[in-house]
Write a protein that binds this DNA or RNA. Structure first.
Lengths: 330, 330
DNA sequence: TTGAAAGCGCTAACAT
DNA sequence: ATGTTAGCGCTTTCAA
């Protein structure tokens, strides 16, 4: 911002025409307003010469819309969210919208701050995969009249949601094991108080209760040798079936299983909730429940677009289904 | 944007004070301007009551700065860039800046469009990992007077750069193999005409020439069975040392090596340029050259901050060094 | 201690 | 066929 950038009126002055004329021409409304071809040419030329770049903020301020959607994600370095992020950004771009991405690290306070900042930036709508404390967010969202779509993690019941039925999908996993489990261990990532994780746990627990299978859930330790000990202990206590509750646990669980020298899938079995590109290359390749990542992103955009353009009422829940990738570990 | 949001003047009117007073108070300059405590309280209360959210665009327009840095990345779903992205966003946030992230998919045209859009949004500065055709970008950047820092992939020599000396690091890889290579194969990802990849190739090629080791580079096919065939062919033609030129090739190369039933590291060896969390869990664990991802992001932010605050001249190149993660495949 | 007013860059209704 | 002007929401100088 050293040398002030050229503005509409700079061009107008240089050419002795009005700002309006320049604005019309540069927005391709020259013909519509019957500006002479010659003048149009001149204006466009001058704009290039002065390397004019329109000020989007001024335009938005005037027009009251920003053509920008805010995207609130817990962790962009997690492959799952990175993929969602990419899909959403691409799709929105095709629809003529920009995406403003923020990363909350599953930190509730930060999330609130960042959401406020998005609203300050006058976003037209918001797609969000919220951290746990939804109640805190609701007032923020109600204050503004911005359409919001929740993705991956549901928000309020009255709000839109696109994602997976975590409880159902998790409970279905029991029947995916190649042998009837003697004891199931759920390996829980940190932070564990995230709604999706809790729902998955619920699903497994209920299904185990029904099938009369012992179930235990364990928090994944930070230290890998603790993981190894923990898994070895579980095996000794009769566990033969492991479910990693998201893609952050899976490889570390596998590593623990290997250290315990358990034969997979003969002695023990492992299923991952969440797929990852690396899983097919592991030894054995890891069987995983694949979430429809792209579809979640696409559907979220479709929905926000409906809300934006057709002013539809919120409250619709879209549940997409997962696909079990049967490989070598189940 | 249905019900218009409350503005400064709404509060001013409701309280029969001027916009200026409200502005002062809400920006915590109440004391500075000797606004009475009582009035301050009243104003803050009313602001909350009307759920006032300041309009950032209006503010920026007035003040001429946006406290926003544009971040241009080739592929946010690539773990390497995702990590850089996260680091940069966090660090910038700590410095009081927001980050506007765009994803180019290594598409030159899209990259130009997106950069223009960032400039329209009056970003204060830009950090960019550019696609190949830098010459096209230079004019865009010169037109605006925005500080730009290149990260990961160098831009112009006159511009700032933070990243790795790809040629040097790649050439050093030769001596990392546990046995003197008989023939080295470089496995090249697509798109291959990216500067970093070319520099890595150059480094290996020169080092091979010097050490009198045969070298061949092959483009990674889309189809995995083609990869397998290709690798099998290379092994038959005497290749015993493979270098995957970025994290996108490594697992697929390993898979090919396994299919060929080559013993690693006894018969053939594999080194990956770029590390990945999954590599330590592979069988054998993959030896990789780890780029200082976080440091690249951190340094890029430090530099843009210097440019912004201390108006330093561009043209500085920061080369950070890599770390060889010796695991089981070299 | 507070208010009035100008102006950031742009668009669009209204004049001419 | 083109110019004038008001105003989007905010900050900040100057005046009272």
């Amino acid at each position: 911002m050293k040398t002030k950038r050229t503005s509409l009126s700079d061009i107008a002055k240089a050419l002795n025409v009005s700002k309006a004329t320049v604005s019309f021409v540069l927005n391709d409304k020259g013909d519509q307003f019957n500006i002479s071809k010659e003048k149009q040419r001149l204006i466009k030329e001058k704009a290039k010469e002065l390397s004019y770049v329109p000020n989007f903020f001024a335009k938005s301020l005037r027009q009251g819309e920003t053509k920008t959607i805010g995207l609130v994600l817990p962790d962009i370095s997690n492959a799952f969210y990175a993929e969602i992020c990419k899909t959403i950004q691409e799709k929105l771009y095709d629809e003529g919208y920009n995406t403003f991405i923020v990363n909350t690290n599953d930190d509730n306070d930060l999330e609130k701050v960042l959401m406020r900042e998005l609203i300050q930036r006058c976003i037209d709508g918001m797609i969000i995969a919220p951290s746990n404390e939804m109640k805190d967010l609701i007032p923020i969202l109600l204050e503004t009249h911005i359409p919001v779509v929740f993705a991956d993690r549901p928000g309020d019941n009255l709000a839109d949601f696109v994602g997976v039925n975590n409880e159902l999908e998790a409970s279905n996993l029991l029947s995916s094991f190649s042998q009837v489990p003697k004891k199931i261990v759920g390996i829980v990532p940190q932070p564990a108080d995230v709604s999706t994780i809790q729902q998955r746990l619920n699903g497994i627990e209920k299904a185990c209760l029904k099938a009369n299978i012992p179930f235990e859930s364990v928090l994944l330790p930070d230290n890998q040798s603790d993981v190894n000990n923990l898994i070895e202990g579980q095996i000794h206590s009769g566990a033969d079936s492991f479910i990693a509750l998201n893609n952050k646990c899976t490889l570390r669980a596998l590593s623990g299983l290997r250290t315990a020298e358990a034969k997979i899938p003969e002695d023990v079995r492992l299923i991952s909730f969440d797929d990852s590109e690396a899983f097919q290359y592991m030894n054995p390749p890891i069987s995983a429940l694949r979430q429809p990542v792209r579809d979640i992103g696409l559907q979220a955009v479709t929905r926000i677009y409906e809300r934006l353009k057709e002013s539809k009422e919120p409250g619709k829940h879209f549940h997409l289904s997962c696909e079990f990738m049967a490989r070598g570990s189940h």
